[in-house]
Amino acid sequence: MIAQNFDYLTPVSLAEAFDLLNDPGAKVMAGGMSLIPMMKLRLAAPERVVDLRHVPGLNKIQQDGAMLRIGAMTTHHELESTPLVRAACPLLAQAAAAIGDVQVRNVGTIGGSIAHADPSADYPAALQALEAEIRIAHRGGERTVLAKDFFQDTFTTALEPNELIVEISVPLEAKCTGASYQKMLQPASGFAIVGIAARVSMDGGKVSMVRVGVTGLGGSSYRAANVEALLVGSEGSAADIGKAAAVVAEGIDANSDIHASAEYRAHLARVYTARALSAAIARAEAQ
């Protein structure tokens, strides 16, 4: 469990980080919770590791109008425990709390996790449901990508080489909106076998807005627009939920491994979609 030799570089500004990342042998590291194990197993052997922890300004959490702006280097623990996040965007706090174990949450970061784009990671489901905006910087510029366009496939994102995630923005939860993240965890790794994030707004006894994000089921996280379409405008009854949840896995080539078959994953996606929607509606109605 010993990595190959590598240079460890700690830029103190984004500009310096971009300089260092010009080197094709360089790999950026945020919390290192995925990179370091892979290096120790020698599945990854970067010549240079560029650690972003000393780049200032990347771990702020701030409210900006109707948005909550989260620095890419914010740790899972900060997201699960910061009162502002818990109040203004409980879904993100729930997803953060569902990650791995305490040690991982103390070190791992949201930017690192989504850049890695593990198909079973917890954040992507929440970010899909939140229609999060991911602000990406490169030398001399920035662009913003929506979560649905950011997560492309297994370990594949819209991020280009020499680009860095600097911030993730999510909307402040509106009134009469409830959210829930529900996952079945794989007992060995704690990753999601499936994880479902749901946000629902209720207006006059009807579902006025619903967003469903899915992780773990296929090669990439996705927003289940078909589920949303079936539920919006309904009363959000158990029957409505059941009908909508039933289509969550449609058209998805579900993953299969020693922990869960494709068939079981698809079934779990339906069950957990219904559970997440029920919990979200109950919360929305409680407001």
Partner: peptide, 12 residues
């Protein structure tokens, strides 16, 4: 196939 704690589940 269960060569690491990622895949071999001991109870926590």
């Amino acid at each position: 196939l269960t060569g690491e704690f990622m895949d071999y589940a001991i109870p926590k």
